[in-house]
Amino acid sequence: MASRDQSSLQRVWAWLAAGLICYVPANVYPMLETRTLVHTESATIVGGAIELAEHGAYGIALIIFVASVVIPVGKFIAIAYLALSVGRVSRSTPETRHGVHEIVEYIGRWSMIDVFVVAILSSLVQLNAVAAIQPGPASLAFALSVIFTMLSAQAFDPRMIWDGIENDKAGTA
């Protein structure tokens, strides 16, 4: 049992802003630098997913795309929506909003997949001249973005969704 934290919303917005800021360099800078005998290429998050799809690995491309684009962007929108709807009359029921918060909290950590993939690839693929993979600066930005949005989702107190609904019901009845 814990009392309401009045600064909860502020922390939600602060972490969310930090996450958003980190998400920009995460997409602009390269995530991976692959060096083979013939050429060197660097790929951003989206570029890597597209490349996989071109190789025919649609399933994996989809996992990467969902984990590093759909989930983070969806999370930004969902958290902002939840934070805005606190204390306002909303068209969606508290049940729906509660479900949204639960999904956001559960799914957020899965975005780390891409960071781990980069780590595994760059430690494994060190074959001197034949092929080598190095992590790019985007990996740090992306990891920070995931961590910040996780903190943002945790700072959101789901009980705020339910506060005041009993009063509303009493008032309208």
């Binding site: 996989l52 950590r109 781990f116 993939v117 595994i120 690839l121 693929v125 034949v130 092929a131």
Partner: peptide, 24 residues
């Protein structure tokens, strides 16, 4: 609990396997 990510790492392994498979 939310910060223990061993199971996410396992999925990351699977993804990297596919990525490397045509390289080596």
């Amino acid at each position: 609990r939310p910060w223990a990510m061993a199971e996410i790492f396992a999925i990351g392994c699977a993804v990297s396997l596919v990525k490397v498979a045509d390289l080596a």
